[in-house]
């Protein structure tokens, strides 16, 4: 059978995408994560007497902890199947990618298994985050010479 006929048949049978439903679930769950993060910041400021930036770090750490625990007990990926980006965009996604990779890496031992595999998924976030940050800061540095203050 020629390729064109085959491609047409494939197109006709493509599984339905639930884009509206997925978008809605992602929006709501992402929004709830924002609320959780803000509550933790307020908890940090009001109860733990932290400064604003410290409270933000506190909020991030608690969220990382929650994501790691949910990953360890095996609930995280079931939740992620439902909410998609609502979990992979917040810090939870980062924490889960490292935790799940580390847990599975244990079969190959602490060095090649856990140590290197941990960064298999999250590595590119760190790499490109740092790479772009350096470039942007250098640009800002160069802009100071034309009168743009830091």
């Amino acid at each position: 059978m020629d390729y064109t006929t085959y491609s047409e048949i494939v197109k006709n049978n493509a599984p339905k995408k639930h884009m509206v439903r997925n978008g809605f679930l992602a929006f709501v769950s992402g929004g709830l994560m924002g609320i959780l993060a803000q509550s933790l910041i307020d908890l940090g400021i009001n109860v733990l007497q932290l400064e604003k930036t410290e409270a933000m770090s506190f909020s991030a750490i608690v969220i990382v902890f929650l994501a790691a625990v949910l990953t360890m007990v095996g609930w995280y990926n079931n939740m992620a199947q439902i909410v998609g980006a609502g979990l992979f965009i917040p810090t939870t996604g980062f924490a889960n990618s490292m935790t799940s990779a580390a847990i599975e890496g244990k079969f190959e031992g602490p060095i090649f298994g856990v140590g290197t595999r941990m960064f298999a998924l999250a590595g590119s976030v760190i790499t490109y985050g740092i790479f772009s940050a350096v470039i942007l800061c250098v640009i800002r540095y160069l802009l100071t010479f034309v009168g743009v203050p830091l």
């Binding site: 599984p15 997925n22 990953t71 990926n77 939740m79 992979f88 939870t92 799940s100 847990i103 599975e104």
Partner: peptide, 17 residues
Amino acid sequence: ERQFRYPTEYGIEKKDA
């Protein structure tokens, strides 16, 4: 999954197919 895809606990939304 380890070989071809992702760690089993990785929170990725698997597509329908």
